[in-house]
Simulated assay, not measured.
Amino acid sequence: MSTNIELPKSGADLQVQARSFVQEAGQWLHNIQDNWLTIAIATAVAVVVFFGLHMVRRWGLRLCKQGEGVANWYAVVGRAVARTGNFFILMTAIRLVIGYVDAPPMLYTTATFLFTIAAVFQATIWLREVILGGIEHRTASEEYQGSSLASAIGIIRLLVTIILFAIAFVVVLSNLGVNVTGLVAGLGVGGIAIGLAAQGTVADLLAALAIIFDKPFRVGDTILYDKSKGTVERIGLKSTRLRGPGGEERIVANKKLLDYEILNSTNRDYRRMALTFAIANSVPAEKLAGLSDLAKQVITEEKLVFSHAWFTGVVPGALTFEVEFDSPSPSADLADAAKHRVVIAMLRRLEAEGIRLYVPAMLQAEA
Rank of each mutant, 00 (worst) to 15 (best):
G60Q: 10
M91H: 09
I162Q: 01
N72R: 13
E142F: 12
I211F: 08
E324S: 12
I223K: 10
G177P: 01
S20F: 00
A18K: 14
V22A: 15
V283P: 02
P216A: 03
A18M: 12
T231P: 01
G134F: 11
A367K: 10
P284N: 08
R128H: 14
A289T: 15
S292Y: 06
D326I: 01
L263F: 12
I135Y: 02
L90P: 03
A71H: 05
I251C: 01
L205N: 11
A335M: 13
I155W: 07
A203V: 05
T201W: 11
G52C: 03
A93W: 03
L294E: 09
E129D: 08
T312D: 11
Y358C: 02
L176H: 10
P360C: 09
E143T: 08
V314W: 06
T124G: 13
P105M: 04
K256C: 07
L158G: 13
P8E: 06
R272T: 14
N281I: 07
L158D: 14
A150G: 11
T240E: 08
R83E: 09
L319Q: 13
W28S: 09
F165I: 01
A166H: 00
E261W: 10
L196C: 04
V160F: 04
T231N: 06
V22I: 13
Y225V: 05
V252M: 03
V298N: 04
V283M: 00
A253C: 00
A197V: 06
I299A: 08
A119S: 13
D269I: 11
M55L: 14
L29A: 09
T84E: 04
G26F: 09
L158I: 13
K227N: 13
A140T: 07
R79D: 08
H54P: 00
F306N: 08
L7Y: 12
G85Y: 04
G220Q: 10
L7D: 06
L275V: 07
F115T: 07
R234C: 11
M91D: 07
P330N: 04
L149C: 01
L14C: 07
L209G: 05
Q297C: 07
Y100G: 06
S148N: 04
S151R: 13
I235E: 03
A103F: 05
R268W: 10
L363R: 15
F213G: 00
G247T: 08
S282Q: 12
L159Q: 03
P328M: 07
D34T: 14
L132F: 05
G190F: 11
V283S: 03
A46S: 14
H30A: 13
L347V: 01
I279C: 03
V178H: 08
D259Q: 14
W310S: 14
V160G: 00
Q364E: 15
S148Q: 06
P8Y: 08
D204E: 01
L183W: 10
A18I: 12
S331C: 05
L176F: 14
V120S: 09
E301V: 00
S265G: 00
R138K: 12
A365F: 10
G195C: 03
A280V: 13
K256T: 15
I167K: 04
R349F: 03
A140I: 04
S265R: 13
G146P: 07
E353L: 11
F321W: 00
F277H: 01
Y100P: 01
L164Q: 02
R83G: 06
K215E: 15
D226G: 15
T181S: 10
E351N: 11
G220L: 10
R250Q: 14
I355L: 02
P105V: 06
V305I: 14
F169W: 06
